[in-house]
Design a protein around this nucleic acid. Structure first.
Length: 262
DNA sequence: ATGTCAGCATCGTGCTGA
């Protein structure tokens, strides 16, 4: 079973890329972030035609997430618990049934948090706290669980081509990285780091200043695995070639393969 | 430090968010 995550930066602008990429890699479950449209405007049929079940949590203009799965999506929840006043569409949780039991997946678009001296940064930290509370509860189930998405967190200096350039940025502030470590330390495995010692393992390159051409990237799209998922992890990959397609997203797909039979 | 992109309100272009 392959589980992937991709921040597409507008699904309507990226539909051709999404269809092309799905045809190439045939993932079983896909977490999509930044669809930038309302639920009704999501091109659901294009994915259903490729054999996917689809659930969408959209909003007008910004944010928005979707979850695709070849197997039926069960127990779908839109929105992260812990703040009834949170209007931003950034979270979907669902379960798929497999031969060995279930696999639980959460699709996450964590807030960017910049600039840090505004209300945006406490919102980010609050979201991370709510995510940790959610994760701690779900770990008690002792299921294969994958938290996948755009975390907007650069975990360590080696996750940036030029870490000094990110000093003071909400993606790299010590407080941000501490909150990310607290989440991981609940018992999660960072799938990419568990399977690769490669340097320059980036998932995002800014549109500006020739960041892609200079390989001035960062690693902010992650798959965090519960122990039961980590024990079945076989391999991971970053579909970097997608960033070279015409009119690309600034993020590329990241995936993990598991020895779990559908 | 920097050379961008997308959606929106509104119909040419500035604002927001990333």
């Amino acid at each position: 079973m392959r589980i992937a995550t991709w921040n597409v930066n507008s699904i309507r602008q990226r539909l051709d890329h999404a269809v092309r990429w799905l045809g190439e890699t045939r993932p079983d479950v896909v977490c999509i972030q930044e669809i930038k449209c309302q639920t009704e405007a999501f091109p659901k049929e294009a994915f259903e035609a490729l054999g996917y079940n689809v659930t969408v949590h959209g909003q007008k203009g910004f944010n928005g997430v979707a979850l695709l799965s070849r197997l039926p999506l069960e127990d779908v929840t839109h929105g992260l618990a812990g703040d009834d006043g949170d209007e931003q569409a950034r979270f979907i949780e669902a379960v798929v049934s497999v031969k060995s039991g279930v696999v639980r997946v959460a699709c996450i678009y964590l807030p960017n948090g910049n600039p840090p001296d505004t209300e945006k940064y406490p919102y980010k930290l609050g979201f991370m706290e709510r995510l940790s509370a959610f994760a701690a509860e779900r770990l008690k189930l002792e299921e294969p669980l994958v938290l996948a998405g755009d975390f907007n967190v650069i975990p360590e200096p080696r996750d940036a081509a030029d870490p000094a350039a990110w000093t003071g940025d909400a993606l790299f502030l010590p407080r941000t990285r501490q909150a990310f470590r607290s989440l991981v330390n609940l018992g999660f495995t960072d799938a990419l780091r568990a399977t690769s010692d490669a340097g320059r393992l980036f998932t995002f390159w800014d549109y500006q200043a020739g960041a892609w051409q200079r390989d001035n990237g960062i690693r902010i799209d992650h798959l965090l695995l519960s122990p039961q998922a980590a024990d079945r992890l076989i391999a991971t990959g970053v579909d970097k070639h997608v960033r070279a397609w015409e009119k690309p997203s600034d993020h590329v797909p990241v995936w993990a393969d598991f020895s779990i039979a559908a």
